[in-house]
């Protein structure tokens, strides 16, 4: 099963937080989470707070362990973090005592320990320029604006040229204007590098603008990926033009409808889940994947 269609595949992921107090029940945040990501695909994940999106991302990154289930990447099981999986955290998480370029260099040096200082610098400058940081290389994070910091974080993640890029609400703390600009830069870089991306977001428009597919998660506990919405809008996409595309609002309405009502209706419980056919998460030994839905064709 090592073809392009399942570069990443999660198999029956489950996360249970054991009860901390006596008399409390264990908390199963999500259960039977299956999805595939194709190579070079830009995917986003939307769901309400508490459905375990961040935990899933951390499991993909190898920073957290699922209670059960596994993640396959490129045919190999993911065990622990590695340079193959770059992560952009929600709060930039740059090292504050290093300048912008030193932060990126720290990552590049980890990827290419054999490189000369000049080579490292060239790589850093290349990616810092890509994210639009042209003259602030030598500033420390505290001297950069929120948007700039997040750009450095993105440059750091791209600069190690990993196979998979994981982003946990990278623009969550930014104002709408900055957010829009960085989204455009992000998509430009992605079109050049063709990395596989899995990104968590709360922003429906952001998801449509960036994604090939959007994973919709039901509410927790017992959250799961209910469906994968295919965004078939042509690329390269333009922020101002995309909203005029006839399919845009079909997709958008579908997503909003899911978030407002269906995410709750579909949310599992320990009893409710048993009634459903997909209770086991598999059908005839095959993983039951969330259906691809294309609202534009509906």
């Amino acid at each position: 099963m090592n073809d392009e269609s399942n570069f990443i595949s999660t198999q029956l992921l489950q996360k249970v937080y054991p009860a901390t107090k006596r008399g409390q029940e264990d908390l199963t945040v999500f259960d039977k989470v299956n999805f595939n990501i194709r190579k070079g695909e830009f995917t986003t994940c939307i769901g309400h707070s508490g459905c375990g999106k961040s935990t899933i991302l951390n499991i993909l990154a190898g920073l957290a362990e699922p209670t059960s289930g596994s993640v396959m990447m490129d045919g190999k099981s993911v065990s622990g973090p590695s340079l193959d999986k770059a992560v952009v955290f929600q709060n930039h998480s740059l090292l504050p005592w290093k300048t912008a370029i030193e932060n990126v260099a720290f990552a590049v040096k980890s990827r290419h320990p054999e490189w000369s200082l000049l080579q490292i610098r060239k790589q850093c400058v290349k990616y810092l320029e890509m994210v639009g940081l042209n003259d602030s290389y030598n500033r420390k994070p505290s001297e950069l604006s929120g948007g700039m910091r997040q750009r450095v974080g993105i440059a750091r993640a791209f600069a190690i040229e990993s196979k998979l890029l994981l982003m946990d609400e990278p623009f969550g703390a930014l104002d709408a204007l900055t957010r829009g600009i960085i989204q455009e830069e992000l998509i430009k870089i992605w079109e050049q590098t063709q990395q596989t991306v899995f990104m968590i977001t709360h922003d429906v428009d952001e998801a449509i603008f960036l994604s090939d597919r959007i994973f919709l998660m039901t509410n927790g506990p017992y959250a799961r990926v209910a469906e994968a919405v295919v965004v078939d809008l042509p690329r390269p996409r333009d922020r101002s033009q995309i909203v005029h595309h006839p399919d845009y609002y079909k997709i958008r309405n579908h997503l909003v409808d899911f978030l407002v009502s269906r995410s709750h209706e579909l949310s599992g419980s320990s009893n409710g889940a048993e009634e459903r056919q997909e209770e086991s998460g598999t059908v005839d030994g095959e993983l039951l994947l969330p259906p691809d839905v294309n609202p534009a064709l509906a």
């Binding site: 590695s82 340079l83 955290f89 990552a107």
Partner: peptide, 8 residues
């Protein structure tokens, strides 16, 4: 976590 993902 950054150090971990960079395999330091």
């Amino acid at each position: 976590n950054i150090a971990k993902t960079l395999e330091c």
